[in-house]
């Protein structure tokens, strides 16, 4: 596979997963506001500030808007074309990459993505939005799910599939750390200090955003406990949106590409992914709390970035050709 193609497949999947996560984040946070009492500007800001921070685009946001409220955050993360990490920015980015690799993916995959793009550009998108943010974000999630389903149903399990899945899981793991980080302050070393009905609602929201509410209950029964929620979203072995599960998957994809057994590594990407996976396998939520939840999540994000960087070096990066030098050399051979 061409290196350029691998790079495009990786970003194609990342962008779709990013749009999907944004839709989940926004939907849940807009819902949450409905549960608040005595909502004032300060409370609103306290609510939205961490959301913006979690996307990592805080600076850009405050360049464009004066304050964080439902309207500005929604606009920034959904429709703002100058934000490449808005829903519309992500879907456009995914489609641009898909155009470059159209010969590699199935027509069904391409058409689904193209339809999503056309939907976002059409008046229909505005109509759906007007009838409710919930419907709108649901539609985006729907497209993403269809994309995932078609990836599973229409692609051969080859390098193309591996790079798509690698992109998806690294993005999903990254976003999981960011979503948890929104609530990290509750999990300071003595969690008893905070709590209350509003917090419980927020933890439930977090579970819902990860489509994890039902799976969580199946494992922990009715009890919504912050420590359990964090444990589930970080360490679950079999829930497909937990950080550990994502790292397990992306590690497997990397080994599939190289053909190197899971017990060994053949490049830095595999080495880093294996180490992160082993840390996730051989620690528990108490270790995270002792380390400091925020610090731990930060460190995890950092390591995911390193895995992404090492993968780029291993498969996608090609030393840029110095055209002038190349031309000169070739002319000497003529």
């Amino acid at each position: 596979m061409l290196s350029r193609v691998a790079d495009s497949l990786y970003w194609l999947a990342r962008y779709i997963e990013r749009a999907d996560n944004l839709a989940r984040l926004m939907e849940v946070n807009l819902q949450l506001l409905l549960d608040f009492q005595d909502l004032d500007d300060i409370k609103l800001r306290e609510h939205w500030d961490p959301v913006i921070r979690s996307t990592g685009d805080e600076e850009k946001f405050y360049e464009l808007y004066e304050e964080a409220n439902s309207q500005t955050v929604t606009d920034f993360l959904t429709f703002n074309k100058s934000n490449p990490n808005s829903v519309i920015g992500c879907i456009s980015g995914a489609r641009e990459n898909a155009r470059m690799v159209r010969d590699q993916i199935s027509s069904e995959l391409w058409e689904t993505l193209n339809n999503c793009y056309l939907f976002l550009k059409s008046n229909d998108a505005q109509n759906v939005w007007d009838s409710g943010a919930y419907e709108f974000y649901d539609r985006i999630k729907d497209y993403s799910l269809r994309f995932q389903g078609l990836t599973a149903a229409t692609l051969p399990r080859d390098e193309c599939y591996d790079f798509l899945q690698f992109g998806r899981y690294i993005e999903r793991a990254d976003k999981a750390t960011r979503m948890l980080d929104i609530k990290y302050h509750i999990l300071l070393p003595s969690p008893q200090d905070v709590g209350g009905a509003e917090d419980a609602a927020q933890w439930i929201a977090l579970l819902r955003a990860a489509s994890a509410y039902d799976a969580y209950h199946a494992q922990y029964l009715a009890n919504i406990d912050p420590v359990h929620v964090a444990e589930f979203l970080i360490f679950s072995e079999n829930f497909p949106r937990s950080i550990r599960y994502c790292v397990q998957e992306l590690n497997a994809r990397l080994h599939n590409v190289s053909g190197c057994p899971l017990s060994k590594y053949s490049n830095d990407a595999e080495k880093l992914a294996g180490k992160l996976l082993s840390d996730l396998t051989f620690s528990n939520v108490q270790d995270v709390i002792n380390y400091g939840m925020h610090e731990w999540l930060d460190n995890c994000q950092e390591r995911l970035n390193e895995i992404g960087g090492a993968t780029y070096q291993a498969y996608m990066f090609q030393k840029p050709v110095d055209l002038a030098e190349e031309i000169q050399q070739q002319q000497q051979q003529q």
Partner: peptide, 15 residues
């Protein structure tokens, strides 16, 4: 940009 010529042969840059 995916192609490169070395020793009078054309190569593509793959993973």
């Amino acid at each position: 940009r995916d192609l490169l010529v070395r020793d009078f042969k054309v190569y593509m840059r793959t993973t």
